[in-house]
Each structure stands twice: as structure tokens, then as C-alpha cells.
Write a protein that binds this DNA or RNA. Structure first.
Lengths: 227, 227
DNA sequence: CCGGCTTTGTGAAAACATGCACGAGCGCCC
DNA sequence: GGGCGCTCGTGCATGTTTTCACAAAGCCGG
């Protein structure tokens, strides 16, 4: 009676790994590999086989014992689960350095996320072409979103503008946001947000670097063999 | 006897949030705020107050009961813990679109991560200036790394080159990697890696979009009031 | 200087994620 | 067509992260 809709919810950690499996499997398939075991896949993904199997088991029982998984079929299943059976056009807000780099970067359209629009508040940028798309004014974002059926917005503005832009996007009907601005944004319940923040990543690395450095310093003074 | 070096290890999840607190606190400090409670900070960070307090408690007991935290002091403590008391120069590998965008983007040098070098394999790019830094050949990466005391490498190459580049960086003495290439890289034990992958982020958003869409479809057929 | 108000710091419980280990199923070879 | 070897799927133990809830501690006003 309910087809596939009452699919058990997939843990967030697993959802974050599925795209990795998908990429590996797609590449392997292109290289002519038709079958893979959880262990092979785990090696490529830098994980252990048990985790891979558990992750895949949330999709259903698509493996064959003693054999492994059929690559092509698994690609199909992951794509379906991730909702990649159709394109998701995105709107980019901010036509500065980052916005231009994102629009120009192939990785968007290639992978099912074509740039459906670019908007900016800066009148001097409105009307120009970025990555083959004409920049429109932020005020028109609702029209852009609705005319293209866009549900994903990419925020590529300075931090100070991010919250305002997020509000505008949500008001326009966008339900998922990818935020490159170095600011935490608040959104209504039911809206998804992912954040990409260069400074945060570097600072995390800094922490472990610093820690390594002090561990080393400590070792220099440690009793030999104490461990 | 051991000063602050035998600091208890901070959970990874907490380390990832400290940079967020740091940014919020720094901004508030610039706005003249001298004191904040865990609840205020939690609001800015989009978290709950208990989590903020527990995170901060790993640094030590720097709050005052009934009052909150002194912003300036906390900023200092977080910076110290994250190893941000000095600059960490980085080397960028790949002078293509992404590498150029990263080098040109202020966010690096601003925040204590100056671009100490850019390298590429493409002879036509070697010698050109990107973000004020002259591009050198990948073969010279060890010299660049060692002469500047660089310990963080940023991989901004196509996926196919990423593993090779990572190996070269590690061989050159780099101990932390920030990987923008859409590939999982393998590194020796003791090397830190963080990955930033646009396609993965979009695909995660796609999953939740798709899920929302099917939940909605289900509701349309559901018995009214069932929920 | 005391009592009430506020907010921290932290044990303990709950939720979540990972890793182990093994039974079950499948293909292949003899 | 039976046995052997391989690999999946998953229950259970372990480890990590989040959340709750409250005693302890500091400030302020009377």
C-alpha cells in the first residue's frame, strides 16, 4: 500500500557518506568494474568494511553474499535514495569572487545541480554574465526561484549579508541552503542548511598541528621509554 | 611541573565548534560587548546552552557563575587552544580556478593563514602571479614548504591528481591537509586531513529535499488527522 | 551580611555512531 | 549435488556526543 515512502530514516552520518560511495562506484563503473565487495569499497573510501555494509543496508539488501555488490545497480539505488534521479537547479546569491568561481566551476551543472540563476545586490554586477548566466538583482530572487522551480540556494556573500539573504531565499520558497558565508544563519524549522567555512577548517587543522607540536615538545623532556 | 601541556584531550565535535565560538565572540567584542552568557552565545551559534558550557569547560573554568564569560578573555583562551597565537602559512597546490579563487580570497591571510606558496604542474602557469604570489612548479614544493616552515597544504587540483599531490606534500613535510578535490586521499598515520566537497554537500541537501518531497506526497494521500 | 536571583560546571542518562563477530546465503568446484 | 570458501546482513558491545538537571558559586539589593 505504501510503496517505498515508509523507508526507514537513514542516519545523518550515513547520508553524508553515501555521496562518497556514489562517486567511487561511478568511477569504478566507468573503469569497467561491474562488481565490488564492501571491503574494496571501504578501501577506496578510507573506512572499514563493516561500516560500509551497515550504511548500504539502510538502502535495502542489495548485495549478494559471497560475491559483493553489483556496481551499476548500487549506483542506481544510491542515486535514487539521494534524490539524484532528476536535476536540482540552484540559485547563487552573490556574484563576487566566490560566486563567480562557483558559477564557473564545472562541478555544479555536471553533477545534477545546474546554476538556475545568480543574483546580487550590487547594481554594477546586475546584467553581467557570470558562467553563462545573467546576474539579476536580489530583489528578483523570488521570481527567479519560482520560475525555475528552484529549491536550493547557495549563499556566497560576505558574512554580514548572509542572514538577510537567507531570509530572502526562504521567503522566496527555497528549502535548502548551502552557506559559504562565515556566519551561522538562523532558519525556520524544516529548512536544511549546510555550511562550508574555510576559516573553520583551517582552524581545526591548526588545533591538531598545535597539539602535535606540544606533544613533541613534551616528548623531548619525557623519560625515555616511558611512553 | 608540566604547565598546560597535559591538557585533557578535547573531543573532535567540540574542536569543530570552537572556531564558531571564536568568530562570534570576536565580532561581539568588536561591537563593544564585554560579557556573554552561555545562552547568548548558544543563540548566536544556533546551539543549546548546555552544549556551549560543556564545550567551554574543556578549556578550563573561565566563566563566572551568575555572570557569564568575559568575552576578551575567552577569545584569548580559545585562540590559544586552537594554536592561533601565531600564523600558519599554507601552500596551495593547483593554480586553476579554485586555487586562484582561494589565493585571491582574503579569508586566508586575514585569519592567520597567509599563502606561503602556490605550486602547479602546468608549466604555463608556473611563473605567473596569483594573489600576489608567484606560482612555482610542484617539483619544488619541498623547497617551498621547508623554506617557509609550512605545515598545512591545500589541495585544489582535479580529483585524479589529488592522491599524488597529497603524497608529495606529505613527503615535503606537511602534516595537515585541506582537500578540495572530490577524492578520498590516503595519508600516513599522524597526518590530519579535512575535506571540503561541494558535490557532497549538495547531494546531502538533495537527500533531505527528496525526502521532504516524498513526505509531502505521502501526506496528500494520508487519512486526514491521522498524524 | 543575608537571601534571592542568575548562571556556571558537571555528573548521569539518553541518543547516536562505530566496530566486532558470526550466522546465513550464495557461487563454484570437484 | 554436496562441501567449501567467500561475503553479506545484523545483533551486540563499545565508544562518543548530546541533553538533562542540579548543586555550587558569584552578584546585588536591602
Amino acid at each position: 500500500m505504501d510503496g517505498q515512502r515508509t523507508r526507514r530514516r537513514i542516519p545523518e552520518a550515513t547520508v553524508a557518506r553515501l555521496p562518497v560511495y556514489l562517486r567511487i562506484l561511478s568511477e569504478q563503473f566507468d573503469d569497467g568494474v561491474t562488481n565490488m565487495s564492501s571491503e574494496q569499497l571501504a578501501d577506496f573510501a578510507g573506512l572499514n568494511a563493516a561500516k560500509v555494509r551497515k550504511d548500504l543496508s539502510y538502502l535495502g539488501s542489495y548485495g549478494t553474499r559471497g560475491v559483493g555488490y553489483e556496481v551499476e545497480y548500487l549506483v542506481y539505488q544510491i542515486r535514487r535514495e539521494l534524490g539524484l534521479t532528476h536535476d536540482w537547479p540552484v540559485v547563487i546569491v552573490g556574484a563576487g569572487n566566490l560566486g563567480q568561481a562557483l558559477a564557473g566551476y564545472g562541478g555544479f551543472g555536471d553533477r545534477g545541480f545546474p546554476v538556475g540563476g545568480i543574483v546580487d545586490v550590487d547594481e554594477s554586477k546586475v546584467g553581467s554574465l557570470v558562467g553563462g548566466v545573467r546576474v539579476r538583482h536580489l530583489d528578483e530572487v523570488a521570481q527567479v526561484v519560482q520560475s525555475r522551480g528552484i529549491s536550493i540556494g547557495v549563499i556566497a556573500t560576505p558574512g554580514a549579508a548572509a542572514q538577510e539573504v537567507a531570509d530572502a531565499l526562504v521567503a522566496a520558497g527555497v528549502t535548502s541552503l548551502l552557506n559559504f558565508a562565515p556566519t551561522v544563519i538562523n532558519v525556520p524549522h524544516g529548512i536544511s542548511v549546510r555550511k562550508v567555512d574555510l576559516a573553520v577548517e583551517l582552524q581545526i587543522l591548526s588545533y591538531y598541528e598545535q597539539r602535535r607540536a606540544s606533544a613533541k615538545a613534551a616528548t623531548l623532556h619525557a623519560v625515555p621509554g616511558a611512553r
